[in-house]
Simulated assay, not measured.
Amino acid sequence: MKPLDRILLVDDDAVTNMMHRRVIERSGRVLTVDVATDGQEALDILRSDLAAERCLPELIFLDINMPGMGGFEFLEHYAQLDLQSDVQLIIVMLSTFLLRSDHDRAEADPNVYGFCDKPLKLEKLLEIVSDFQNRRYAKRPAA
């Protein structure tokens, strides 16, 4: 299958970003990996892409807990972006420990595809990329 063009990692931890970038690059399933260290930087990247009429990342791995703008605040602002209805983008929430309240809150957001424990494992990445490429999902997998 053709690799994804871009993934955006959004995490405030440099070591985590380095590890996740390595997993993604070794998978051979993604051409470009961009990194943002908080939600605001991620929004700035997306807004810049929209303004320049560049393709958006096809997949965003979003940490829940970050200083500055965290994952949930990012989702609130993301929902306000002027995205075309044909944009296919997956947001996967990342966390080392997911509280039930965080899970419920993320699950209620129509822009969240799913959840992934940190650190990102190759098998999980390949599953998500395959789901994206096969278009086997709407907004999130059926329960």
Rank of each mutant, 00 (worst) to 15 (best):
V87C: 01
D104M: 01
M19G: 11
I60R: 02
D131S: 05
P110H: 08
G39K: 05
A51K: 15
R47W: 10
V10C: 12
D104I: 02
D49G: 03
Q80M: 11
D131P: 01
P141M: 07
E76M: 05
D104E: 13
C116H: 07
G114F: 05
L9V: 05
A106V: 09
Q88A: 08
V23E: 08
S48A: 09
Q40Y: 07
R6V: 06
G28E: 04
D5Q: 11
Y113P: 08
S101M: 11
L43V: 02
L122D: 15
D12T: 09
L89I: 14
P110C: 00
L83M: 06
R22M: 10
V15E: 11
D131I: 01
Q88M: 03
M1Q: 04
D63I: 04
N111V: 00
M1D: 00
A142P: 05
Y113R: 04
R105G: 08
R47C: 14
P3N: 02
A79M: 09
R135Y: 03
L50V: 06
P141N: 05
A138G: 05
L122K: 00
V35M: 08
M69F: 07
L120F: 08
V87F: 01
T16M: 14
H77M: 11
L98P: 00
C116T: 06
D13L: 06
I91A: 06
L89D: 06
V30M: 04
G28H: 01
R21E: 14
G28F: 00
D38P: 15
D34V: 04
M66G: 13
L9D: 13
A79S: 15
